[in-house]
Design a protein around this nucleic acid. Sequence first.
DNA 1: CGGATACGATACAGCCGTGTATCGGATACG
DNA 2: CGTATCCGATACACGGCTGTATCGTATCCG
Lengths: 215, 215
Amino acid sequence: MVIEEPRSARREATRTRVLDAARIVFAEKGVIGATIEDICEQAGFTRGAVYSNFADKDAIVEEVMEREHQALLDHITGSIELVEAEVASAGSLEAAVSSLVNRIVRTIPLDRQVTLIATELEIMAVRRPDLSGSFLAVNNAFRERLAAFLVAAMARVGREPVVDPLDIIDAVKAIGERSVRRALIEGPDGDPDALSEAVLPAVILALSRPIDGAS
Amino acid sequence: MVIEEPRSARREATRTRVLDAARIVFAEKGVIGATIEDICEQAGFTRGAVYSNFADKDAIVEEVMEREHQALLDHITGSIELVEAEVASAGSLEAAVSSLVNRIVRTIPLDRQVTLIATELEIMAVRRPDLSGSFLAVNNAFRERLAAFLVAAMARVGREPVVDPLDIIDAVKAIGERSVRRALIEGPDGDPDALSEAVLPAVILALSRPIDGAS
DNA sequence: CGGATACGATACAGCCGTGTATCGGATACG
DNA sequence: CGTATCCGATACACGGCTGTATCGTATCCG
């Protein structure tokens, strides 16, 4: 954990603008395909600004990873109370599960950019073992937070996981991402929630059981 | 569908060597990150050979996509009889489903390279609408073949899908790929089948029902 | 065996991205 | 209001990749 020199507010704003730009460019061109100049153009800076703030592209990649997961964590934290209220007030088990699924899926905002950047960063972690450490660190924190949320939300509808909740999260995320990707490939007519809505409710049900029940 | 000029056997062998090399390089460096020279080096040629056989990198990408799906199709076709025999001789429902799942997962060979190249090509289709056409063409053929196989195999154990079998295939493939990716990121200790084995049997069961039964 | 041709290697020119070193202007402070 | 400092812009040198044009050679055929 490096001590964060406060530096000037101006500098911090520049860094933020560069990282925001990098996120967009990484999603669109891929981490490898993105050039420093692409990022500069997107941010409205020249290379001087970037090189005076970051050592090289790898440094930018690491910070983007961290910010990405942090943003997701914040998003989750902010929406947990919503879910709990919603689930608790559902009439039937089916309604509660459906609401739970919807909320989990929505909790992970899966638009074009998030999907692309998430996939891109994951693939990057596969290819570059030197980056997998920071990926795993932030990603595991994210998964565990989401798993805890899942268990709590399930308890609200009187159910509990039958497998490691982390595995449930992975499965749900995998299906959600695939759902969005298919829609993106199919073009404007594609429904980004089609696959999720078709299979996730049954999957969540199948991977949980009534808290007191046998199977 | 372009008419395939037979050309010489020598030329065809060169093309094959280049495409094999491209597959490896695309997996390792990404489609965008791969250079023509990378491919040449991997294939043991110089750029002259490549440029006399392919217009540019995009042409190579399209052919790699096509070959990749064709190889998977061949692999599936070759293993269907195996599965049917295996499933038919299973003692219990659980054993049959487990065998079915295993076979489906194994039917899609999910090693490092296949996973990387599959993800890479899919992302490429998202980013480049001009390539999405050829991706969808080959990919849909692949999905439908696999879906037909799934339905037939399910019938062998007296079950039928409760949702579009294409969605089941997508879900299974998404989970299988995520399973392998996690293992790759975690390094040598990671079990590429961990997530698949944990959730897929329940998922397949949940998305199917006895053929005569109500629910 | 000899010539034609197909095919891959080599050479070359141009462009693009990188990283460093220097410059100029905005901001902070006395 | 003037000066020092910070920070982003500009300039430059270098290396790598691309695509084309040319060359040399292996292969095919009479």
